[in-house]
């Protein structure tokens, strides 16, 4: 049997011919990074390669690592294997990796979504023989509403808080969801204040991408400044003393997990908005059709269930484990 072009080993997703890893979770010599979220972009590799839009963020998080950039669609060859990056639409700079060798084409999706969020470059389906897909939300219970609809819900929520003289607090992952909200919310309602972790990333991203003005919450920020305005903070701040300044506040979360009533109640937040940077059920199936791939490798999320479903549909589907899944199911970058 022919050796697969890409394999999953203890270090990461590996191309043995090119001797290159993708999103390695243990230190390796050469790695292609799909996007700058911490679990995909780890510290300790010798050589990094990623899209230019991810580089400032990777450097911001990992320091001055040895890093090379490739634009979307730009082909490059390593040991006779041809690689190219293509937009994945998950967060700013997020890329799929296309790998071709002797006519065999594999695509590693990284994390992705199909709707244009106005800040990440939209996903492009790439034709391939084997598609490695995430299935964080690979269940028919997950069906996203259009972004416009959800953003309107959040705007209404903000207006309501404002009319009640409250501070609207949204918990959102500091890379991705935070900027997506900032780029789309109606700033005629008020100002957006940010937690330092969010604002640091905003500053990095503003060096190459337009982002509406936001205000960093500092020691000098007064309670009165915040009332009627909106605060974006990482989920870890929920219930912390940092929140004291926001009293009276109403809390909310934006994530695909907010689909479940139980998930909202468990987090003890007031409002849950279903807004995800991952594909939902219907887009997952549509994407697999679009790639025309016959072989589907299912990784993180409901991979067992989704893979079983694909098999029934006639795909050659199997599952691979990554360390991404538990963190994502448990927490917040979704």
């Amino acid at each position: 049997m022919k050796k697969p072009l890409l394999e999953f080993n203890q270090n990461g997703i590996y191309c043995p011919i090119a001797k290159v890893y993708m999103d390695a979770w243990r230190p390796v010599d050469k790695v292609i990074i799909s996007h700058a979220h911490a679990d995909h972009s780890k510290y300790g590799h010798q050589n990094y390669l990623t899209h230019p839009n991810s580089i400032p963020i990777v450097k911001h998080r990992l320091g001055n690592v040895n890093i090379e950039s490739k634009g979307w669609g730009e082909k490059f060859t390593i040991n006779g294997v041809q690689f190219s990056l293509h937009p994945a639409g998950h967060v700013i700079g997020s890329s799929q990796v296309r790998v071709e060798y002797k006519g065999d084409v594999w695509v590693y999706s990284g994390d992705y979504k199909r709707e244009n969020d106005g800040i990440s470059t939209p996903f492009e389906p790439i034709k391939c023989n084997t598609f490695i897909t995430e299935c964080t939300f690979g269940l028919p219970a997950f069906n996203w509403k259009k972004q416009e609809v959800v953003i309107n819900e959040i705007n209404d929520f903000w207006e309501e808080c404002k009319s009640n003289n409250q501070t609207a607090v949204i918990f959102a992952y500091s890379l991705g969801k935070a900027q997506r909200l900032i780029a789309n919310l109606n700033l005629e309602i008020g100002k957006i204040y940010t937690h330092g972790a969010v604002e640091n990333l905003n500053e990095v991203i503003r060096t190459y991408k337009n982002l509406p003005k936001t205000y960093r919450i500092t020691k000098e920020t007064k309670k009165e400044d915040l009332i009627g305005n909106l605060v974006i903070a990482p989920p870890s701040t929920h219930g912390s003393s940092w929140m004291k300044k926001m009293v009276p506040y109403v809390t909310s979360s934006t994530s695909g997990w907010m689909t479940f009533r139980g998930a909202r109640r468990r987090r003890a937040i007031d409002r849950g908005f279903v807004l995800s940077d991952h594909v939902d059920w219907k887009d997952l199936i549509q994407t697999i059709k679009d790639t025309e791939a016959k072989n589907i490798v299912c990784t993180h999320g409901y991979k067992d269930i989704f893979s079983k479903y694909l098999k029934e549909k006639g795909y050659n589907s199997f599952i691979e484990n990554t360390p991404f899944e538990e963190q994502e199911i448990l927490e917040n970058n979704v």
């Binding site: 269940l139 028919p140 219970a141 997950f142 069906n143 139980g262 409901y302 479903y309």
Partner: peptide, 29 residues
Amino acid sequence: MANIPLWLFEESYHIVGDLAETIALVVPE
């Protein structure tokens, strides 16, 4: 109605944890 096999509905139900909610989620809006 959701155009999915029964086993997949059952799996979804185990994860959602509430039958009424599962039906409301999988049946098209």
